[in-house]
Design a protein around this nucleic acid. Structure first.
Length: 425
RNA sequence: CGGGCUGUAGUAUACCGGCAGUACGCAUGCAUGGGGUGCAUGUAGACCGGGUUCAAUUCCCGGCAGCCCGACCA
């Protein structure tokens, strides 16, 4: 992508009135734009990051047999009344009426819709288990939006729903989802702690939150220094914890030291059991001919929040430092100094070679922009590798390679640089 | 929703009860070309409504909007 053509303009100042680090960086670096409190546009750079997160999630959920669907955001009051959540979810349910004064809601979550759907299609134990997910906009009439992208009123969520014939089968799949989630969060650049949590308005008796340690997080957790076990403070009814209670595969206790800190909740998984299936009439006939409610689980990840968390976790005084897998591009190619024809030909060739090597390149080909501004922009945007070309390197037939967040600059030829980048990627 | 703070060019800000200033941006020109370059010219602004006053961007009231604290939230 040629930067001169990119719909994008970094700002010289941080936005006033934004305290939240992710909002300050993402707005200033022009990844997102705020339309109103808790409602943001994703601009080309930001949308690329968002898409990468989306694809990572899709890959990992497909890998555990998830089938992607797309459910409506516009939902009738009737199904919400069946579960008793029409009144209970206000807020955060957005409610309004259509032309015919029929009550509607914008989906803040999709248990009702999916359970209604599955209930009408699943009749037999032979149809189960079933794993359906979507990546779709959720609308939440939050009392207050906070922390930039951390808590917004409209956002894309990956929500997966599983349907089983038994609790045992749910338990097995629940663990599979936890495994997939670990991979997703690792690929997005951080280790998540898996916290025992309370279920809130979603319900069910067991739930786990995927927590990223971060001083600006809204939740306080107690976590193990050795493994990924944790517990949300709200779940910890005053009993003190000294050692990690997790059972290792060999049956011993983990016994790791317990620490505490603030964390951001990036995902939440629930064992719903039959809470929704009973109310919405989602039953199946088992092997012995008995009619039983379907056993359910549900599993959510907020994509924008995940993106914000990555920014909160990876930055320095100069800007964002994207983890490789979710960076908007692999390489930021800068041509600096006065643009002369021979230099431009040299840089264009490098740009082509990089793309030929299947690398994603943002090419700062802007003319008349000073080196300092290009460097400052590059640091702010935070693409993992910076490749600089100038009259100096042109004469030497070399490029300068620097990794965002590290001091060292290397001067080498293009083939060596590509090799190096590919090894790290 | 309750509490607190705040609304001045695209952005960040200054001053003021009496014609609204600066920096960046943007446009044009010349110079320049390795960490937001220099000079010149131009461009663009008081959230909305009411009140007090000879006069309101400034003071008062009401809206609206933003941020922050509270709310079992992906």
């Amino acid at each position: 992508m040629r930067q001169s053509k990119l719909f994008f303009k970094t700002q010289k100042e941080y936005p006033k009135d934004e305290i939240s680090l992710n909002a300050r960086l993402l707005i200033r670096a022009n990844f997102i734009d705020k339309l109103m409190a808790g409602v943001y546009s994703f601009l080309p750079l930001g949308w690329r990051v968002h898409k990468k997160i989306e694809n990572i999630i899709r890959e990992e959920i497909n890998a555990i047999a998830g089938q992607e669907v797309f459910l409506p955001a516009l939902q009738p009051k009737t199904i919400w009344e069946k579960t008793g959540r029409w009144d209970k979810m206000e807020p955060p349910l957005f409610k309004f009426q259509d032309q015919h004064e029929k009550d509607l809601a914008l989906g803040s979550t999709h248990e009702e819709v999916i359970t209604d759907l599955v209930g009408r299609f699943v009749n037999s134990y032979r149809d189960l288990p079933l794993y359906l997910y979507q990546i779709q906009n959720k609308f939440r009439n939050e009392i207050r939006s906070t922390g930039g992208l951390l808590r917004v009123r409209e956002f894309l969520m990956k929500d997966l729903y599983s349907f089983h014939t038994s609790s045992e089968d749910l338990d097995i799949y629940y663990q599979k989802v936890i495994g997939a989630y670990k991979k997703i969060f690792n690929r997005c650049g951080f280790d998540a702690k898996i916290a025992e949590a309370s279920s809130g308005s979603i319900g069910g008796d067991v739930s786990n939150e995927f927590m990223m340690l971060c001083d600006t997080g809204e939740d306080k957790i107690f976590y193990c220094a050795k493994c990924d076990w944790a517990i949300n403070e709200e779940k910890l009814d005053k009993k003190t914890l000294e050692k990690c209670p997790t059972r290792l595969p060999d049956g011993r206790e983990c016994g790791g030291k317990i620490l505490n800190g603030q964390a951001i909740e990036n995902g939440h998984v629930f064992k719903l059991k039959t809470k929704y299936s009973e109310k919405l009439g989602a039953y199946f006939i088992d092997k012995d001919g008995n009619r039983k409610p379907i056993i359910m689980g549900c599993y959510g990840i907020g994509l924008g929040r995940l993106m914000a968390s990555a920014v909160e976790a990876h930055n320095d005084a100069f800007g964002i430092i994207w983890p490789e897998e979710i960076a908007p591009f692999d390489i930021h190619l800068l041509e600096i100094g006065k643009t002369t024809k021979p230099l431009r030909i040299f840089t264009e060739k490098i740009y082509q070679e990089l793309e030929k090597a299947s690398l994603e390149v943002l090419y700062d080909d802007r003319e008349g922009v000073f080196a300092g501004e290009k460097f400052t922009d590059a640091d702010l945007i935070g693409i993992p590798w910076r490749l600089v070309v100038s009259e100096k390197t042109h004469i030497a037939k070399k490029v300068e390679l620097k990794r965002r967040g590290q001091e060292k600059t290397e001067i080498l030829n293009l083939e060596e640089a590509i090799k190096k980048i590919k090894l790290k990627l």
